[in-house]
Simulated scan of single mutants.
Amino acid sequence: MADNFSYLDQFTREEVAEFKEASKLKAVERQRGEQFLLSAATGVRRRRLIAEGDSWFDYLPGTDLIDCLRNLFDYDIEKFAKAGDTLENMIFGTGINRHFEREVPQIYTILRRIEQIKPKVFLFSGGGNDVAGDEFDLYLNHKLSGLPAYREVFADQIINGVFRTYFEGMIAAVAQRSPGTHIVVHGYGHTFPTGRGVDVLGCTFAGPWLKPALVKKAILDEVEQRSIVFGLIDLYNEMLASLGGAHRNFHHVDLRPILDPFTDWANELHLTNSAYARAAREIHQTIEPLFS
C-alpha cells in the first residue's frame, strides 16, 4: 500500500461506491496494493468506536474519514454523522417539527450508546460548517466600509467563547456517562477559497462557500482572502488544542501540517480521497495508543 494513498485518487465512481459499501460492511480485503474485494465481516473487531460528525465523516461523492478508518485501519465504528451538520445541533440539538416543538436531539441517543458500550474512543468532527461553511460571511466586514475585512474580535468571541463552551458541555456529558472514554477531534486544514463546490455528474449540489462570501463583501485580493480563511482555521485549531491541554480525555488532531492547500482539496471544504486517507492515518496514530 502506497504511503501517500495516491491510488485512491484513481478510483472511478463505481470503485468509490464499492469502497464506501465495504466501509458499511466493515470488511475489505486488499489485493496487489490497489484493488479490493468485499467480504463478509467475521467476528467482533477489537477497536470499537462511536462517531458523530459532519461531511468529513459522511461524504457521499468520495471517500471520507470513517470509510478510511474502517477499511484501511480496521476500526469498528458506529456512525451517527450527517453531512452539513453544525456544532450547535450535534451537541445540543436544534431540530423542530412543523408544530414548532423541539425534536429529540440525536446527542441523547449517542450518549446512551456511550454509556452502554463505554467505547475507548468517541470520534467527533464538527465546526467546519460553523466556521467556513454557510456562516462564513458572518466573520467578514464589507471591504468598502473601511472596517477590517476580517472580524477578528467577533471570530475570537465565537470560537473561544461560544464554541469552546459547547465543547466543554460535550466533554462533561461524555465523562459523566463513561469516564474512560476519550474524545478525539480534528481541526480541519488550510484551504483556499477557490470557488469550487461539490460537483457530481457535472452538477453542483453544495457550495461553494468561501469565494462567494468574500466577493460579496468586495474582498477580492487573493492573498487577503487566504489570510482570512487560514486565520479562522488556525483560531479553531488553537481552541481545540487548548481544550486538549485542559482535559486529559480530549485529544486534538492537528491536520494542518499534513494537508496541502494546493493539492489535497477536491473543493473548498472537502479533501481528495488520498488526503482523507492520510488524515485518517493521522487520527489512527492518535487513537491507537488509547487502546493499549
Score class of each variant (00 low, 15 high):
35 Q>Y: 15
40 A>G: 05
256 R>Q: 08
263 T>F: 11
98 R>S: 13
280 A>M: 00
242 S>I: 02
71 N>R: 05
140 L>F: 10
99 H>W: 10
281 R>Q: 14
189 G>P: 02
140 L>K: 10
50 I>T: 02
22 A>L: 00
179 P>H: 01
132 A>V: 15
25 L>I: 11
160 N>L: 04
47 R>Y: 10
57 F>R: 05
61 P>K: 04
57 F>L: 09
38 L>E: 11
80 F>E: 03
202 G>D: 04
268 E>S: 10
34 E>L: 14
154 F>N: 06
253 V>H: 00
272 T>P: 03
260 D>R: 02
279 A>T: 05
179 P>W: 01
204 T>P: 00
15 E>P: 06
246 A>G: 06
95 G>A: 14
250 F>V: 01
52 E>Y: 01
199 D>N: 12
181 T>E: 09
149 A>W: 05
75 Y>W: 08
291 F>I: 03
101 E>F: 04
241 A>E: 02
133 G>A: 12
67 D>N: 14
269 L>E: 01
234 D>K: 05
164 R>K: 14
105 P>E: 04
242 S>H: 08
274 S>N: 07
59 Y>D: 03
133 G>K: 13
276 Y>S: 01
150 Y>C: 05
129 N>Q: 10
105 P>Q: 04
200 V>T: 14
86 T>G: 03
18 E>S: 13
133 G>V: 12
61 P>F: 07
244 G>M: 04
154 F>D: 09
157 Q>H: 12
182 H>W: 08
39 S>W: 01
186 H>L: 00
209 W>A: 04
229 V>C: 09
212 P>E: 07
131 V>I: 15
195 G>D: 03
161 G>T: 01
229 V>Y: 06
229 V>K: 08
6 S>F: 09
91 I>F: 13
290 L>R: 04
107 I>V: 15
89 N>L: 03
77 I>E: 07
165 T>V: 07
234 D>G: 00
73 F>L: 07
3 D>G: 10
251 H>D: 00
226 R>Y: 07
62 G>F: 10
233 I>Q: 10
195 G>H: 07
240 L>A: 03
157 Q>P: 00
117 I>K: 07
45 R>Q: 13
39 S>F: 06
76 D>A: 08
114 I>N: 09
46 R>L: 11
142 H>G: 12
259 L>F: 13
228 I>C: 07
31 Q>K: 14
272 T>K: 13
176 Q>D: 13
116 Q>N: 13
99 H>L: 11
94 T>S: 12
31 Q>V: 14
180 G>H: 04
154 F>G: 02
177 R>N: 11
214 L>H: 06
272 T>G: 03
106 Q>F: 05
178 S>N: 05
270 H>Y: 06
18 E>N: 13
38 L>D: 09
282 E>Y: 00
146 G>H: 03
81 A>D: 02
108 Y>C: 11
174 V>W: 06
102 R>P: 01
241 A>C: 00
179 P>A: 11
265 W>N: 10
275 A>I: 08
193 P>L: 05
11 F>L: 07
64 D>N: 14
226 R>F: 09
85 D>K: 10
113 R>P: 00
266 A>Q: 08
288 E>T: 10
161 G>D: 01
134 D>E: 15
43 G>L: 13
32 R>K: 15
78 E>M: 15
145 S>C: 03
